[in-house]
């Protein structure tokens, strides 16, 4: 089915099988292998990408659902040789071991920063009517859709805290 998608600033007009997930479209059709297939059921977060600036699981979406959308993957975050602040923070804090979940973690954290800037609450927010303060408990809750089987959670928390502190 004819579908037009902009990925990392590049327009693509393609004819895809309706069954193609957004994740498989990115990986197999565009050869953007940064987004990872972990569980393929929305449970691990390794496939997290940004669609129109909002983080979603690319495995639980069909490419044909994204006609006209703007998708950003891990490959689209850096500006030339300058890493995105979250990419740099993950390096600085050593926030990965095997690295398989890392692209999804970083895209998820980019979405998290936008959600905080927009004042969106989470389950960890004590007062729904007050300004959201990005505590460690908030970061942990908001990143709970991304699993890390190497269990680099303390370092991931530190990386998000570092990037968020720099942005605040």
């Amino acid at each position: 089915m004819r579908t037009e998608i902009r990925v990392n600033g590049v327009d693509h007009a393609v004819d895809v099988d309706t069954r193609t997930s957004l994740l498989d479209f990115l990986r197999e059709h565009l050869d953007l292998k940064g987004s990872k297939k972990g569980c393929d059921h929305g449970q691990c977060g390794a496939c997290t990408v940004l669609v129109n600036g909002v983080r979603i699981n690319a495995c639980l979406s069909l490419a044909v659902m994204h006609d006209g959308d703007h998708v950003t993957t891990i490959e689209g975050l850096a500006s030339g040789e300058a890493l995105h602040p979250l990419q740099q923070a993950f390096l600085t804090e050593d926030a990965f071991q095997c690295g398989y979940c890392t692209p999804g973690q970083i895209c998820s954290a980019v979405g998290l920063m936008a959600e905080i800037a927009a004042g969106q609450p989470s389950e960890a927010t004590a007062d729904l009517n007050a300004k959201v303060v990005l505590t460690d408990a908030e970061i942990r809750e908001r990143m709970s859709g991304n699993l890390c089987r190497c269990s680099a959670y303390p370092q991931i928390l530190a990386a998000v805290r570092r990037a968020a502190g720099a942005a605040a």
Partner: peptide
């Protein structure tokens, strides 16, 4: 807010 993950709630 107690259901699913942010990625799923966004969609």
């Amino acid at each position: 807010l107690s259901g699913a993950s942010v990625q799923l709630r966004n969609k």
